[in-house]
Each structure stands twice: as structure tokens, then as C-alpha cells.
């Protein structure tokens, strides 16, 4: 497999992992925090919430998101990674509807279409355009 094609495949794989772990992590975290309710202003209450099963699952998935996002940024531009992983916003809307019982209005559907067009547009640009930043 040519190096460029291998990089494209690796970028696609890590984009999918980043998006799915982000959506699943945010959904689990939200479910847990909504079950717990407002923890108040104490930082200890927030730390204590980390031991709730749904919150803990959300944190574990968000650690996967963090690591895959970091790996992706080791070879791809931030201005590329940011938009192509935005499909997570669309999946989050569906997750909110089907898992958390939230509603999707017509305006929200319009937003989903705009995001999809934007992601497609940026996805057609090369992943890596950056000059060496080691001098910074």
C-alpha cells in the first residue's frame, strides 16, 4: 500500500474511533450526571460523581477519545481534525433523541445538514499542510 494511501486509511480509522468514543462518552457522562442531578458548587461533589457507573463509563470512553485525538493530531492539521470530527455533533443529536429522549426539531435537522456539508467540504482537503512547528 503506498504511503499516502496508508496515511489516508489511518486518518479515516482514527477519525471514526475519535467520533464514536466522543459521542458514546458524552452520552454516558450526560446520562450519569442527569441521574445524579446538580452536584452543587463543591469540587469534591464533582470528583465524587466520577464513581457513578455511567459517569465512570463516560470518563473511560473520553480517555479513548483523548488518546485517539492526540494520535490523529500527531500527523494531521488541527484545522482538518476539528471539522472532520464534527460529525460527532450529528451523532450526538441522534444519541440525545434515541437514548436520552430529547427531540430533533426542523431547525436541528437543518443544522445537521449544514454540518454534514461542512464536514464533507473539509474532508476533501489534505490532512497535513503544516510547516514544521519545531521552531516555536
Amino acid at each position: 500500500m503506498p504511503a499516502t494511501e496508508a496515511l489516508h486509511s489511518k486518518t479515516r480509522l482514527f477519525t471514526v474511533i475519535t467520533v464514536l468514543s466522543n459521542v458514546a462518552g458524552n452520552s454516558a457522562l450526560t446520562r450519569g450526571m442527569q441521574q445524579l442531578g446538580d452536584p452543587g458548587d463543591s469540587p469534591f461533589a464533582l470528583i465524587g460523581a466520577l464513581f457513578h457507573p455511567w459517569v465512570a463509563l463516560g470518563v473511560a470512553l473520553l480517555i479513548v477519545w483523548t488518546l485517539s485525538h492526540m494520535a490523529l493530531l500527531s500527523w494531521a492539521d488541527l484545522s482538518y481534525v476539528l471539522p472532520v470530527t464534527a460529525s460527532a455533533y450529528v451523532l450526538t443529536a441522534f444519541s440525545g433523541k434515541f437514548l436520552l429522549g430529547e427531540t430533533i426539531s426542523l431547525t436541528r435537522w437543518a443544522g445537521i445538514i449544514l454540518i454534514t456539508v461542512g464536514v464533507t467540504l473539509v474532508g476533501r482537503t489534505p490532512a497535513d499542510t503544516r510547516e514544521m512547528t519545531t521552531r516555536l
Binding site: A110, G111, G118, T120, V122
Partner: peptide
């Protein structure tokens, strides 16, 4: 793309 996504996210 970034502009469309930002507007889309506000709609969502």
C-alpha cells in the same frame, strides 16, 4: 466548512 459547521451547530 468551518463556518457551515459553526452555523450548523448553532441550529442543532
Amino acid at each position: 466548512g468551518a463556518g457551515l459547521i459553526a452555523i450548523g451547530v448553532v441550529f442543532v
